[in-house]
Amino acid sequence: MEPVRLSKRMAELGLCSRREADEYIAKGWVRVDGVVVDVLGSKVLPTQRIELQRQAQAAQAQRVTILINKPVGYVSGQAEKGYEPAVVLIKPDNLWAGDKSGLRFSRDHLQGLAPAGRLDIDSVGLLVLTQDGRVAKTLIGEDSDVEKEYLVRVTGRLPPDGLALLNHGLSLDGERLKPARVEWQNNDQLRFILKEGKKRQIRRMCEQVGLRVVGLKRIRIGRITLGELPQGKWRYLRSDERF
């Protein structure tokens, strides 16, 4: 049984992200088998017990996750090609009146806030930004299998085997795609449920079967739905909500 870096093991256990783990270790907020470990790069065996001290738990409790109904024309992450990032929408006057988190907006909530998954500039709907490494790992970690659901308006004619190919049978960038769930919602709209998120995946999948996407909206990530959140507005993830 090989020892592994403590920060890596903490991330594997879902205690926090590796970046957060290094921060907690350096501050002496981590115990291994009851003993404080404060040396970065320390290694542990998979069988050893790892605990976060109160200070680390308090720091995690203060980290926020924000849900935005992203409009067209905003990028998910860093500003690019003259387009603004969705984070600029997070300001007090854009907070949805229906927010029931009990949290009050603070400038601190913008520090270290990063998108947990992409939504391209031409797409709308649910976008998650978080300060919490646990949330990011759940949604975009290598072993994440959280479902993302989309309503996709298309034009073109689908060949007889097109729907079957969309469900399972296509490849992108030389890699076979994971099975998806794709069905007609109405005459010109498909419902996609994916467990992965390659760049412009749905648009590229549709192109392979002769369809062109003219509208794309993400309506659900895991157990969290877009619900009644208006376009351009945002709300906090409540403490009782889980992806």
Results as ranks from 00 to 15, higher is better:
230 P>C: 10
145 D>V: 12
56 A>P: 00
90 I>R: 02
112 G>R: 01
106 S>Y: 01
123 S>V: 08
19 R>E: 02
219 I>N: 03
178 K>V: 10
72 V>R: 15
224 I>V: 15
147 E>V: 11
200 R>F: 06
129 L>V: 05
190 L>R: 12
216 L>W: 02
6 L>E: 02
199 K>C: 06
79 A>D: 01
47 T>C: 05
108 D>K: 01
237 L>Y: 12
38 D>T: 08
94 N>K: 14
61 A>V: 00
81 K>E: 14
75 V>R: 04
147 E>I: 03
20 E>F: 08
128 V>W: 05
146 V>S: 06
201 Q>E: 15
43 K>A: 06
212 R>H: 13
98 G>V: 04
78 Q>K: 09
215 G>A: 15
20 E>N: 08
146 V>T: 15
5 R>C: 01
231 Q>C: 12
120 D>E: 12
199 K>E: 10
91 K>V: 13
57 Q>P: 00
215 G>Q: 14
106 S>F: 01
31 R>N: 05
175 E>P: 07
222 G>M: 09
40 L>Q: 09
171 S>M: 11
112 G>D: 02
63 R>F: 01
205 M>I: 07
29 W>F: 14
233 K>E: 13
82 G>S: 04
94 N>A: 11
194 L>S: 12
204 R>T: 06
21 A>E: 04
159 P>V: 08
131 Q>T: 00
112 G>H: 00
5 R>I: 00
49 R>W: 03
94 N>W: 07
37 V>M: 11
175 E>Q: 15
107 R>F: 02
28 G>C: 11
30 V>S: 08
132 D>E: 01
107 R>Y: 03
93 D>I: 09
103 L>I: 01
109 H>P: 01
32 V>L: 05
217 K>R: 15
140 I>M: 14
69 N>G: 07
